[in-house]
Design a protein around this nucleic acid. Structure first.
Lengths: 215, 215
DNA sequence: TTCCAAGTGTGATAATAGTCACTGCCAGCC
DNA sequence: GGCTGGCAGTGACTATTATCACACTTGGAA
C-alpha cells in the first residue's frame, strides 16, 4: 500500500489551509488499520486526534459486562470528536472506535491539535463543526433508544448502515444484535417481519435492502 | 430585582478576560426567568448563546408525542452548549431548556459569540470546555438508558438531582416519571422499594434522601 | 465427501415495564 | 367542617424484550 501524499489528504480535507496541511504532513503519522481492528479506546495512555482518511469506522460504547451499542459511524474526511475531547476517564464504560473496513487514519499529537486551534482558523472551524455534528448524531441515537421500540431502532440502524455502506449489509444477525444491545433471536424475528413487508431480503450473512422508507 | 452588575458576572465567570466581560455587558441582555419557564427550544427563530448566571436549568429532549427525558442540568457558570451549536433543525424531537428554579440568564447574540471564538482565548476555551462537558454528560445519560434497568436509572436520576439541588427532592412521582419517560405507577413502586432499603423517605410532594450509595 | 462451526428459525417461558381501574389520602378552600 | 383536586398505593392485566432449548441449514475445511 502506497503512502498517502499531500494530495490525498487535501482531497479529503479540502477546507484546510495550505500551511496547516504542511504541518499535518510534517508532524502526524498515518496508520493503516485492518477490518475489525481497534483504532481507539478511551482511557488509553497516548492521546492523539484521529482523522479518517479512508475506510469506515464505527464508534460505540461498551460497558463493563461487554455489552455495546453503536453511537455513530465515521466516514472519510471526518474526525473522531472524542479523541479531541476525552480526558482520562475511569468510568465503567468506554468509548471505542473500530474499523468496519480496512481504513487509514491520521494521528495528530494532542498538543499540536490544541495549538492549532488558535493558530489555524480552518482547524478551529473544523473542530467546532466536528463537535456539533457528533453531538447531533449522538442525540439522534439517544432519541431512538429513549423513545422508540426495538423495531424502529432496527430500522434506524439499517438506514444508517445503508447510508454509509450501501444496500448490501454484510452483517450477521448476531452482530446487529450486539450493536443494538439486544439478542440475536429478537433481531432475527424482527428482520423476518421486515422481509415479509418486502423491505429487505435475508441471506446468509448479509441483508439485501430494497426500500426502508415504505415500512 | 436588581440588575446584575459586572461583578456578578465576573463572579460566575472568573475565567473571562476583562475586555470580554466588557463586551458581554455591552452587547448582551440579561433575562430573568421564572420557575418552570421555557428558556430555549431548538428550532426557534432567534438564536442566542445562553449563559446561566443564577438558578438552575434542566435541558431535556421532547418528542412529537410529548414524551420527554432529561439530558442534564445546567448550573450557574455554565453555558447551554446546544444554544451554541444547534443549527435550524426540523426534526421531530426538540431540545428544550426550562428553569427548574427562578433563574437569570445572559443572552449573547449568536454572531458575537461566533466572533469571540477567534477574538478571545478565554471565550474559545470556555466554549470548547462546555462542549466537552456536555458531551460527557450526554454519554452518561445515554449509558444509563442503554445499559441499565429503570431501577438503576432512577437511582442515577436521584443522585444527579441531589448533586444540583440537595437532599430534599421536591418533585411528585409524576414529574419524575415524565423526566425518565416512564409512568407514575412504576416510579412509585420503585421509590417504595428504595424506601424499604432505607435509602430515602417518601413524603407528599417530596423525597428525603438519606444515602443513595448503599443501595 | 464428510463433517463441523457458524448462522438462522421457532416455540416456550421469564422478566421488565407500561396500562387500567380503583382506593385512599391529604391540603387548601369554600 | 366538608368538598375537591392532585397525589400516592396497589392489584390485575398486557406488551415488549430477553432467555432458553433445540432443530435446521450452509459453506468451507479436513
Amino acid at each position: 500500500m502506497e503512502i498517502p501524499q499531500k494530495e490525498d489528504i487535501l482531497k479529503r480535507f479540502p477546507q484546510f489551509e495550505q500551511t496547516l496541511l504542511d504541518e499535518i504532513l510534517a508532524h502526524s503519522t498515518i496508520r493503516h488499520v485492518e477490518e475489525g481492528e481497534e483504532v481507539m479506546r478511551t482511557g488509553q495512555y497516548i492521546r492523539s486526534t484521529v482523522l479518517l482518511l479512508s475506510g469506515l469506522l464505527k464508534v460505540y460504547r461498551e460497558d463493563d459486562e461487554g455489552n455495546e451499542f453503536l453511537m455513530y459511524y465515521l466516514e472519510p474526511g471526518s474526525a473522531c470528536a472524542l479523541s479531541m475531547m476525552c480526558t482520562a476517564r475511569n468510568e465503567q464504560s468506554q468509548i471505542m472506535a473500530k474499523a468496519v473496513t480496512e481504513s487509514e487514519v491520521i494521528l495528530i499529537p494532542s498538543h499540536l491539535s490544541e495549538q492549532w486551534l488558535a493558530k489555524y482558523k480552518s482547524w478551529h472551524n473544523f473542530v467546532i463543526a466536528s463537535y456539533r455534528q457528533r453531538f447531533e448524531e449522538l442525540l439522534q441515537t439517544l432519541d431512538s433508544i429513549a423513545f422508540k421500540g426495538l423495531d424502529e431502532r432496527l430500522l434506524f440502524y439499517l438506514k444508517r448502515h445503508v447510508k454509509v455502506s450501501g444496500k448490501e449489509i454484510r452483517l450477521s444477525h448476531q452482530q446487529i444484535a450486539l450493536e443494538l444491545n439486544s439478542s440475536r433471536e429478537v433481531i432475527s424475528r424482527l428482520l423476518k417481519k421486515l422481509e415479509q413487508t418486502g423491505a429487505i431480503t435475508l441471506h446468509r450473512n448479509y441483508i439485501e435492502v430494497h426500500d426502508l422508507e415504505v415500512v
